Amino acid sequence: MTISQTRNIGLPLMNLLKLKGFSILLQLQLEEQLLRTSSENWCILNDGTSDPTVVMGVSGKPAELLEIESVVLDQVPVIRRFTGGGTVLVDDGTIFVTFICSKDAIPGLQPYPRPIMSWSSLLYNKVFQGIGDFHLRENDYVFGERKFGGNAQSIIRSRWIHHTSFLWDYKVGNMSYLKLPKRAPEYRLSRGHLDFICRMKDYMTRSNFIERTVEATGFYFSVRSVDLEAIETPSNIKFCPSSRLLAKQELEAAARAL
């Protein structure tokens, strides 16, 4: 038993799944599976995803959010995920962190969006302690006035999920696939993408961020590492993921409707 394990005796169990370069579509489908079919707590850390991909919230409208002609021409995959939130371009410079918890996992935490968001900021305050001017701004994680982490949530009867895309790095050209959203946080002040976001790599290494995130999770949970191969859907539960790739025809139809 490690010192960390000894410290965490009596805390709720958290299964930690660490991935690297895992498909964001498969990750989202796995997250929904664990949200809906598991009764355990999960933390998923995925260090980058293989191909540049646009990920939209469940109610996102491609015509309002994307430069569709460029997306179609360059064959950029577009995913509609099962949670709410905004639109993001993810690639190998994105680090994904997801928490999937039962409603009673964290004592005193009310299972509503704002309390869950506030709890997450406490956890990440530990991660970024002494690094940059970190704080929660509306629903974003920022250093100063610049965003580096976008969040989305889903809350069901007995469980909730909070997942974050962290911009450790980004390619300037990829930002051109995204339109300025009609609904944006007030602190954005109509800034373009490149004036609004920043890179985490200017503040810390990837490995340091991941290590600190696991350590901070250990303040709230007893963390146990698990392998992807060990995750199974119970045989008595039918599950069909709702996160999916949008077909080229759907995007072209959205473009024609402009």
Rank of each mutant, 00 (worst) to 15 (best):
E229D: 12
S4A: 08
I95S: 09
K248D: 08
G21W: 02
S190Q: 12
V71L: 02
V226M: 12
R224T: 15
D195H: 06
L189F: 04
L258V: 05
G93L: 15
L180W: 01
G108L: 00
T205Q: 11
D92C: 13
D74V: 01
Y220S: 13
F22V: 05
E138I: 14
I197A: 10
P241Q: 10
I9L: 11
P12I: 01
V71Y: 01
G150N: 06
T217W: 09
R157S: 04
K61T: 07
Y124Q: 05
V214E: 09
G144H: 06
T83N: 05
R191Y: 14
I155R: 02
R146N: 02
M200H: 11
T6S: 03
N46V: 04
N151E: 06
T213Q: 10
V226P: 03
T2V: 05
R81L: 04
H162G: 02
M14D: 05
G150C: 01
I131K: 01
G173L: 02
D74Q: 01
S23M: 07
I237N: 10
E186F: 07
I237A: 10
I79P: 00
I9E: 13
T49Q: 13
G85M: 01
P241I: 08
L123N: 02
K238W: 00
I131W: 02
V58W: 13
L45Q: 11
E145M: 05
P77S: 01
L45V: 14
K238N: 00
P241W: 15
G93R: 13
V142L: 00
L17Y: 13
K182F: 07
E232D: 12
I68W: 06
S176C: 10
N41S: 07
N208T: 10
I24C: 14
T94W: 03
W119G: 12
H162I: 03
M117T: 13
M200C: 08
L25I: 09
V55N: 00
V142E: 00
E232P: 10
Y203A: 04
C43T: 09
F22M: 09
Q129L: 09
L28V: 09
M204N: 07
G192A: 15
T53A: 04
G149M: 05
R206A: 15
I210T: 14
T94M: 12
F128T: 06
P12D: 02
G60E: 06
D169I: 11
F82T: 01
P107N: 12
N139Y: 12
S207W: 06
T53E: 06
P115Y: 11
M1F: 02
Q27N: 13
E232V: 10
R244C: 02
K171E: 08
T164W: 00
I44K: 14
A105S: 03
P111D: 04
P107E: 03
R199T: 03
K103Q: 06
Y187R: 15
N174W: 04
L189R: 11
G144C: 07
S158P: 00
Q29K: 11
V97P: 01
L180N: 04
L11T: 04
R191V: 15
S243G: 14
I44R: 15
T98W: 08
L123I: 14
L73N: 12
D140V: 12
H163W: 00
E31Q: 12
F82C: 12
D74A: 00
T213N: 09
V90F: 04
V72Y: 03
Y141K: 04
G173Y: 10
R188G: 10
